[in-house]
């Protein structure tokens, strides 16, 4: 299994059941960022790598009635959902959601999960991330 964007997230390891996002923390401003920053864009001071997630709160969502996302087909499902999720560190993430619009409401707790998006030329499964409602 290979992450499509290894600079944005990492796969679960050990007994973890969810992936983690790869962000930055600026000690001076106290702000967290995703994706990683070269320096804090507010205080222009150094940042350190930090892992973010794996859960947050749904801020906004939509359901796209289009059959494809990039080169991923959704077949008979009629489309796919995208949302914005607020992480506890004050970071807002925009990502696909699992399910359809009856499955969630703004304010629901959402968790990171893997999203298979195809195979590479060597037959390895490619995955990115999305969020699902935490039940």
């Amino acid at each position: 299994m290979i992450a499509t964007d290894p600079g944005l997230f990492r796969l679960p390891t050990g007994d973890e059941d969810r992936p983690r996002l790869l962000g930055s923390h600026a000690a001076e401003s106290g702000l967290y960022f995703w994706p990683r920053r070269r320096r804090c864009p507010v205080s222009r001071t150094p940042v350190a790598d930090v892992e973010l997630g794996p859960t947050g709160t749904l801020y906004a969502w939509t359901f796209l009635h289009v059959p494809r996302m990039g080169n991923v087909s959704f077949g008979d499902s009629g489309g796919y959902a995208v949302g914005q999720i607020d992480l506890p560190q004050g970071v807002r993430i925009q990502a696909p959601l699992v399910g359809s619009q009856d499955d969630w409401a703004i304010g629901d707790e959402m968790g990171l999960t893997l999203f298979p998006v195809g195979v590479d030329d060597d037959g390895n499964e490619l995955v990115t991330f999305r969020f699902e409602v935490v039940r």
Partner: peptide, 9 residues
């Protein structure tokens, strides 16, 4: 190949 976070929107 695959899909990136910028491709969804």
């Amino acid at each position: 190949k695959g899909l990136g976070a910028e491709d969804v929107m």
